[in-house]
């Protein structure tokens, strides 16, 4: 049954090709060159971006001699393949990964939520436009504050003005190490510095929301808070995906605040990035294999978050 069909199709195509005369094949040829060039460039770009990751991956799977004796990008040869670096890296980093998650997850969620509420206030709530503009200017300025400029003020703030160790006494009584004060400080700092960008991202989204819909809800008897809770928040899911992914990546990867706020790499509360920065460094020289394995392990959660929210993410970017 299928065979005659196939034959018919090929006949049709051939007859089409001849019917179109000599112009079409020429066009098709030029088209092909164009395509070829395009694919070559695209492949080049893919190779360019993937090369470091590939090098990292193969290096992490080599023994120390393997790293020294082969090219960074060549796969491990027989006898020099080893997963020891991955196991070692995971052992060293697991404490840090947990610490990172402990502060990055709440910091992401809280800064996104505060950003959303602030943006709601800046767009849909009914107050003087002049004041709105002032607050908006402050938020925008907040985005552009370079982290380097606030390192000293932030450390002094936490060490001199806001000593929160005492406030957390219940935690210490539960047996939590006092080093975790630093982690709480790091979380609050990350939230504070994440709010401006979250607010601006949500603001552009809320500005495009149907104003008549909000007004309809007001006339339906809903208060400002209820409108946020029942109308605006449920409709913000795509933007939350964008903001959560962005914020999580930022906070998880941020080394600068971790460096100044956490006492040392050996601290109980050290996040993954901090431990990673000292990983594989010893007097016998650098253990590249261990470093690469550690870097890949540390990057995994951010990739996982992208995968989890990818659908909402693309929807949010499109709006």
């Amino acid at each position: 049954m299928t065979k005659p069909d196939l034959k018919d199709d090929s006949n049709d195509e051939r007859s089409k090709g001849t019917a179109d005369g000599g112009r079409l094949p020429r066009l098709r040829k030029r088209f092909d060159y164009h395509r070829l060039g395009l694919y070559a460039v695209l492949l080049g770009i893919v190779a360019f971006y993937l090369a470091p990751i590939e090098a990292g991956l193969v290096t992490s799977l080599k023994t120390r001699t393997g790293v020294i004796e082969t090219l960074p990008m060549s796969p491990p040869i027989y006898g020099e393949f080893s997963t020891a670096s991955w196991i070692a890296a995971f052992d060293t980093l697991s404490r840090g990964l947990l610490n990172s998650a402990l502060y990055a997850v709440p910091a992401t969620v809280i800064s996104a939520f505060i950003g959303s509420v602030a943006a709601y206030g800046l767009t849909q709530a009914n107050w003087k436009r002049r004041y709105k503009a002032t607050f908006l200017a402050l938020f925008v300025a907040g985005i552009f504050i370079p982290y380097q400029a606030v390192l000293v003020p932030v450390t002094r703030f936490w060490s001199n003005y806001a000593q929160i160790e005492g406030l957390l006494t219940p935690l210490w009584l539960l047996g939590v190490d006092r080093d975790y004060t630093d982690l709480v400080e790091l979380m609050i700092t990350s939230i504070a510095y994440g709010i401006p960008i979250c607010t601006i991202l949500f603001r552009s989204y809320y500005k495009n929301m149907n104003i008549e819909m909000i007004e309809a809800a007001r006339l339906d008897g809903a208060s400002l808070r209820r409108i946020y809770r029942r109308i605006v928040l449920p409709l913000s899911t795509p933007m939350f995906a964008v903001v959560l992914i962005y914020q999580f990546t930022q906070i998880w990867n941020d080394l600068l605040f971790a460096l100044v706020l956490i006492q040392s790499t050996s601290s109980d509360a050290a996040p993954a990035v901090l431990i990673l920065s000292g990983l594989g460094v010893s007097q016998e020289g650098m253990n590249f294999s261990l470093q690469m394995a550690g870097a890949l392990i540390t990057a995994l959660p951010t990739i996982a978050v992208y995968v989890m929210f990818s659908e909402e993410f693309s929807e949010g970017l499109a709006t």
Binding site: E212, E215, A216, A217, L235
Partner: peptide, 27 residues
Amino acid sequence: SQDRDIAMVFQSYALYPHMTVQENMSF
């Protein structure tokens, strides 16, 4: 507005897109 006991029909209908008709009307 929310205390005026006035209902308004808008040009764009202004329905709540994430709610069913039932929920729109119950709101």
